[in-house]
Design a protein around this nucleic acid. Structure first.
Lengths: 138, 138
DNA sequence: ATTACTGTCCTATGACACTAGGACAGTGGA
DNA sequence: TCCACTGTCCTAGTGTCATAGGACAGTAAT
């Protein structure tokens, strides 16, 4: 799996990397148990400092997306989220509100908005209900 | 209308103000033609520099949400957005993707996600299709 | 014409974020 | 046991960002 850094993007390198990993996990390109590249090799490949990689990984660890195994490295974590149900709802509603407000200001009506949301949910293959107690790759 | 600044929020003051205005406009609490407070009185009220207010207003102006009338001040702009249809779609899809990725990582399934999106669209009374050629307040 | 408002431009300062290098401790494999 | 890997902690430098004050020009109302 290849990560790409755009030094002209005006976005911090560690956030670009963290976002690419988050999106890869959401889209299934990275799955539970997959190893992430170690800090030093990836730092050399992307020509940044290994602490920059570590900072990106630290962000993802805080969000419960990856975990570290001493002596072995970082791995994609299973589905347990560190947040309570209430906190998860709060976080999601804040993000959805941002999208709705943006739709309003971009003159995108309700029907077009909901249609686009469904398309993107399908694009990412967002899990249907009650599939989460499966254990697909163990 | 009252804006509130939280100096402990860790979020720039100008962004807090800009977001509150954006959300007020999306929810109908601020409407096309409504005047915004002038820079100096609002700066005194919020106890910040008037350039901080100006910076918030400048952000909103760039997004086509407010406009300036020389000698009179800033006003909520009508519905014309400065972005092309293609650019609007791109912006919206990026924001929706962020919400979908977040739903994935928060173990919120597709049905619950879509339900929450509809609720929030209704909460903001996102415009139904083809109402946008109306001219409600002139 | 004058005054008081309006927004805008310029310069400056301090804090913070981003990035980096050195060094250390733990783990696994040979 | 040793070596090469792993991640982590500490300190430091730089550039950017957020915020601020001074001053100016334009407009509207009197």
């Amino acid at each position: 799996m290849i990560f790409q850094i755009d030094f002209q993007a005006g976005k911090p390198v560690y956030l670009q990397l963290a976002d690419q990993i988050r999106y890869a996990a959401a889209s299934g390109r990275l799955r539970e148990g997959d190893p992430l590249p170690a800090l030093r090799p990836l730092a050399e490949e992307l020509r940044v400092n290994r602490n920059t990689i570590a900072k990106a990984y630290s962000e993802l660890e805080a969000q419960g997306i990856i975990e570290t195994v001493p002596g072995k490295g970082f791995f994609l974590k299973g589905t347990a989220t560190p947040f309570s149900q209430q906190e998860r709802n709060r976080l999601l509603i804040a993000e959805i509100d941002e999208a709705v407000v943006m739709a309003h200001h971009l003159q995108i009506d309700r029907a077009a908005f909901l249609k686009t949301v469904e398309e993107r949910a399908d694009h990412f293959e967002l899990k249907p209900a009650q599939a989460s107690n499966d254990n697909p790759r163990r």
